[in-house]
Design a protein around this nucleic acid. Structure first.
Lengths: 337, 337
DNA sequence: TTGTAAGCGTTATCAT
DNA sequence: ATGATAACGCTTACAA
């Protein structure tokens, strides 16, 4: 395979001139440029990206670590991040972590090995106790709920506020016994806990009791688990007229589980999701949800990362960006206002 | 940032020994290994992947070029390919081509620049006339319908056979006026044309007429287009009792469109998709479809690629792999047998 | 405008 | 078991 030297020889110039032609430097005469271009074509020359990367100290690739890419939410997010990175000349390599702490730490390690110029890390398995791994000596942006106030940039959703609004929406539509379907809620700062807080705030504001029976737990944020949980709610004789689901994916399962149990939505039970994934508007009934503005989050995550990658002077202070949200009323809560 | 030389100096050994420790070569005494490990920790040493790549002539990354990653089908495929690549020590970088021919060619060019060790390319925009770009001098596996008999490995679905089976399934369930929803069907070898062929074969076998009115066209394989198309079919007064959709994504839209038009599925119209994406089993009604065995396709695509990446001797002959398929009967065609 | 020289950080080869 | 040397292919200075 031809190298730059080979091209230089064939064109009767130096390697430097070939490099200048390739990189579009202005100080190359039209004649030499032509000669070089022809030699390149003749030899079917291809730049060696590895050599260039070594020399430049950059790879032109950022890493994106997410639990899995075949979920409506992370798929949507990945697409938005790839789209935001492209105009900046950055490629995106995706690591699937399967929500495992060790895989998330591994992605961090790979990025620090300068495999990537920077990393966008969706923390699900890692928690606040892992803050020590987040050093500012390499560009990292955290995307998600689990780590706040660390030494790195952070892009998050307005979980509490949006969940409060989602629950209030169900109450406005007449629900009085609203179930909340999520993972385990505890001390930690995670999606389930944050969204549960918003849910509780809404009930409190409305002066409704907090019945622990209404809080249902999943072992995974999957459609299958959502369906199982919904069937379980009906079969156990739970009295409920609304369900707020921790994600749209779970809500899709809940809709299915309610159908299995013969419960009509929205007549008997109203259902609310969170994320506004592309599918939600096309379900039957279409799913009411919260739109957290994925594109802005993705754009912001990439721009924060690029700021660090390209920084010349002092390290910028860690920044926290929280997106805006919109409640989207669809059929599963009785349709648009 | 510490280099291998720095570590070597700190440990009082040569860079070569450090390299041997890092790469787990057997010929290192326990004492030296320990010394080196400590020096590495002390200096917070990180290998420079770019330097390694240059030296080795490999990047450890393969490219995956797909139209977009936020569709149930390509998301599912990408996840399977990442999973198949991981145990082989390969990372996957995703390029979104948006089904554009130029972007697909660009992905090919990047891979040939040794940005990737090889490329899995889902051809949608490129066609048979682009075969010239597919040279065997760099590992490439084509995934999809548009290019057959080229000089590179190819992993495909049994489009005609599976579509025939899908259509026959609708006929077995009592449909007599089966519509086909796809993109434009023409001379070219693409998903729409191949699946249309299977559809026609089934009608022919059953002795049913081929009514051109029953073939409906989309401008994109999206849920929105599927919904529009379904509403259009009903509003135009088309007489039909079954719909075979070119993909599950389109079928999700069709289900929505039929609901909008007040048509009940499966009582009045039965609906069949193609792909068996994760969502299909959870829709209401759940979607009957064809399972093309994504995991096997992904596994095969990766193993064909790896065979070329790691080949030492002569170039293997181009291979063509066609997956098996299964018809999955769900509620949208009246439920499991 | 073009060329020369040096070096990015690693590893394969060959000695010792 | 360890080390010296020489690339891998490119680009940043600097010189001409």
């Amino acid at each position: 395979m031809a190298t730059m030297q080979d091209v230089a020889r064939a064109a009767g110039v130096s390697a430097m001139t070939v490099s200048n032609v390739i990189n579009g430097h202005p100080k190359v005469s039209e004649a030499t440029r032509e000669k070089v271009l022809q030699a390149m074509a003749r030899l079917d020359y291809r730049v060696n990206v590895s050599a260039r990367n070594l020399r430049k100290g950059r790879t032109g690739t950022i890493g994106l670590a997410v639990p899995e890419v075949d979920s409506p939410y992370y798929g949507r997010l990945a697409a938005a991040i790839i789209a935001a990175a492209a105009p900046r000349g950055l490629r995106v390599a995706i690591e699937q972590t399967y929500a495992l702490r060790d895989s998330e730490l591994e992605a961090l390690a790979l990025s620090r090995n300068r495999l990537y110029d920077g990393l966008i890390l969706s923390t699900v398995g890692m928690g606040p106790q892992d803050t020590e791994w987040l050093t500012m000596d390499h560009p990292v942006v955290i995307l998600g709920e689990r780590i706040f106030g660390g030494p790195v940039d952070h892009v998050a959703m307005p979980n509490v506020e949006a969940s409060r609004a989602a629950t209030l929406h169900l109450l406005e539509r007449g629900c009085r016994r609203v179930a909340f379907v999520s993972g385990t809620v505890g001390e930690e700062v995670d999606v389930s806990s944050l969204r549960h807080t918003g849910y509780r705030q809404a009930l409190e504001e409305a002066g409704l009791p907090q019945d622990p029976e209404l809080h249902r737990r999943l072992t995974a944020f999957s459609m299958a688990e959502g369906a199982r949980c919904a069937r379980d709610m009906v079969e156990s004789g739970l009295d409920f007229d609304g369900v707020f689901c921790v994600t749209d994916t779970v809500a899709m399962g809940v809709l299915r589980g309610l159908a299995d149990a013969g419960v009509r939505v929205p007549e008997q039970v109203k259902v609310m999701g969170f994320d506004d994934v592309p599918e939600s508007g096309f379900l039957v009934p279409s799913l009411s949800t919260v739109d957290p503005d994925h594109d802005t989050m993705a754009e912001r995550a990439v721009s924060l990362l690029v700021r660090r990658i390209e920084r010349t002077g002092a390290r910028p202070e860690p920044e926290e960006f929280v997106s805006r949200f919109t409640v989207v009323a669809r059929e599963s809560t009785g349709g648009p206002a």
